[in-house]
Design a protein around this nucleic acid. Structure first.
Lengths: 219, 219
DNA sequence: ACATCATTCAATTAATTTATTGAATGTAAC
DNA sequence: GTTACATTCAATAAATTAATTGAATGATGT
């Protein structure tokens, strides 16, 4: 018995969904949204062995979600196109609206008592035009160099405590990182607030900024 | 060692993706996009045992993709909200663009030699205002009754051959069914073309029409 | 051409997920 | 209250998928 077109199509669609049905692969996708990356550095950041990370990348590639190219001895992976970002946003959007678990996590970890409500892209654009705001990128240096918001200052979260002097205590700060659920900017806001800085988070990260067609510097 | 918020969040997001990572569950979602449905009739249409369909529905509910309510002795399931349709569209969009398999299926089954290019919603709206077109809904009667395009005629695909007399051979026909990948309208177009009718497919189905905010009749 | 080394493949084991069955639950009708 | 019946739960076996390891591949640079 031959399978009909409907079964074959749904099998193909399901393979795309299954490819994103893994914690590790979602995290890999978030990192690739920042820019191209090799297997080794991805493996390190996601906390997987190289062989294991390679497997997951193959899986993502078979599902059409990532593409790769060789550069010298390295193979660099990237997202297949910007619609992959839209797909992950759709997933987290459904999760955010309908999973009690997500709400619980937000409440317990991303405590938003002290005005943790994010700044929208539009608002940030207005404020930067008026020169009223320091835009702070708390991602690692290499991600910053691969592209960042115009005029942004880079202080990776891990170096934040040591480099407080670089920030003007009198100006408002807007921090951002990899995406709407990236923890770096949450922690940066908490740390800077504790030291008296006036700081808020951008509602999402660099990939969404770029996807919205806004200008990116240093790419 | 406690897991961080990042791991917990990604686990939640992955569970949403995994819930759609099954042929059967994707098909269930397509049916639910037409309107509320009970376990038994869903099981029958998707070709699963009742207990198995119930399991899949629980899985979808845990992932926040469907909701349910009781009506008498029946439990009726529905999509959690219209963003679920956007999520499945994002999945099929990626698959369509990047999976060679999908292209192959389209070529071999949905042969578009004879001008099979679909009619857009906008074009259909224009043509119906001019009264130039018969809108044909080829879904089963109960789905038609749960909501259909304004002025549409319902002839389920299974009855099409027997009810050809109801169609005006001189007027152009636009056929639609459950969604962009629903096979019913493809087959209806092929069958009607073979009999000399001038017929094309709508680019997608009723759920997308409704999601676009266009008027729906009989709901 | 050879040595080096990042990456992928292949094979094994462990872990999850699926389908299936029969029993349990809960609502409606009598 | 009891019966009938749709649905869900629980338990099992079958199937699929994930992680891990060591070997193979293939491009680079000398």
């Amino acid at each position: 018995m031959s399978i009909g077109p409907k079964q074959a199509l749904y099998a193909a669609f399901a393979s795309v969904a299954r490819a994103l049905g893994s914690q590790h692969r979602l995290e890999i996708v978030e990192h690739l949204a920042q820019g191209e990356r090799g297997v080794e550095s991805l493996a390190e950041r996601v906390g997987l062995s190289i062989a294991n990370a390679s497997q997951h990348l193959q899986h993502l590639r078979r599902a059409g979600l990532v593409a790769s190219r060789r550069d010298g001895k390295y193979v660099l992976y990237r997202l297949a196109d910007e619609s992959v970002l839209g797909l992950t946003a759709a997933i987290s959007g459904v999760a955010e609206r309908h999973l009690a678990e997500v709400d619980r996590i937000r409440r317990s970890y991303f405590d938003d008592r002290d005005g943790m409500e994010p700044v929208s892209r539009e608002e940030l654009l207005r404020r930067t035009r008026e020169g009223l705001v320091t835009v702070l990128d708390v991602r690692p240096l290499d991600e910053f160099e691969a592209g960042h918001l115009p005029g942004a200052v880079n202080i990776p979260l891990s170096e934040l405590e040591a480099r407080l002097a670089e920030l003007d205590p009198d100006q408002e700060i807007v921090a951002y990182c990899r995406g709407p659920w990236c923890v770096l900017s949450f922690e940066a806001v908490a740390a800077l607030r504790a030291r008296g800085f006036k700081v808020r988070r951008l509602e999402d990260g660099l990939p969404e900024w770029r996807a919205a067609g806004l200008p990116v510097e240093g790419a």
